[in-house]
């Protein structure tokens, strides 16, 4: 298969996985707050695991370019948070009634997914297998993230089916950015270490600025720490077992 088509396929599957995030609502009407906290923590751990896998591969190339790329990634997400006025937004409020709140949350989810698209595209440029691995990790990560998003949307009166659709829609730009990133690196290979750094910086910053601060408010810090580390350890272990 054409490698660009592979990226398209991997990223599409990852984005589609978000639809599974609405499933817990089919089983239970409303989720306890602690569950949402753990979903956030698992999502955070999976992202950190992907960042770990990317950085340990990327460091074997020009480390300075990776570092500068990472600073750019951190700066980019911090600036988009500031520009959209979502830097200090409480992301997981189920009782917020302001009409614009739902759109703000969707906007944040969309920007978040964009950074993950860059990660999938970069990983695929490193190797097809690594791309499939990263896309799988992001796909699993999209599920708890979509659960959190669906919880907010359904609490605002959105129907469950529509909430699942919106959760997938928020992740669609993941596909676009994965393909664009892959194509850019294929056209200009020196961009690779920069892209690795950008993806790592953006992933880590998103974990620290969005997922963890919310998680600590939703469940006890010990359970959050355990969920985050376990999710991260699973990705790291699978990465270590991945055939080279």
């Amino acid at each position: 298969m054409n490698p660009t088509l592979s990226v398209l396929l991997y990223a599409s599957l990852a984005a589609g996985a978000a639809s599974l995030g609405a499933l817990p609502f089919a089983l239970r009407g409303r989720l306890p707050l602690a569950w949402i906290g753990w979903a956030n923590a698992v999502a955070a751990g999976l992202m950190l695991g992907v960042a770990h896998a990317l950085v340990s591969v990327g460091m074997e190339r020009e480390a300075v370019h990776v570092a500068v790329g990472a600073a750019l990634g951190i700066g980019f997400i911090a600036l988009t948070h500031r520009a959209t006025g979502t830097g200090d937004l409480d992301l997981n409020r189920l009782d917020e009634t302001r009409p614009e709140y739902g759109y703000q949350v969707l906007l944040v989810s969309t920007l978040h997914a964009a950074a993950e698209g860059v990660a999938i595209g970069t990983a695929t440029a490193l190797s097809l297998k690594f791309g499939a691995f990263t896309a799988a990790a992001i796909a699993v990560h999209n599920v708890p993230e979509a659960t959190v998003l669906s919880a907010i949307l359904t609490s605002r009166g959105v129907r469950r089916r529509d909430a699942a659709g919106l959760a997938v829609a928020a992740d669609v730009n993941q596909v676009l950015l994965a393909v664009v990133t892959y194509a850019l690196i294929a056209a200009a290979p020196p961009l690779l270490p920069w892209a690795v750094g950008f993806a790592v910086g953006a992933l880590v910053y998103l974990v620290m600025a969005e997922l963890l601060p919310e998680a600590y408010r939703q469940a006890g810090r010990t359970s959050i720490a355990l969920a985050t580390i376990l999710a991260m350890a699973i990705v790291v272990l699978l990465d270590a077992l991945r055939p080279a």
Binding site: G87, G201, A209, P213, Y216
Partner: peptide, 28 residues
């Protein structure tokens, strides 16, 4: 880090500042 340092940091400082410092020093 996950059980003490981060939750305590989020409690007393803006999360953008905590996130930026923690991510930059991780990469460094």
């Amino acid at each position: 880090v996950f059980e003490e340092l981060l939750p305590e940091a989020y409690g007393e400082a803006p999360r953008a500042a905590v996130a930026a410092l923690a991510s930059l020093f991780l990469v460094a």
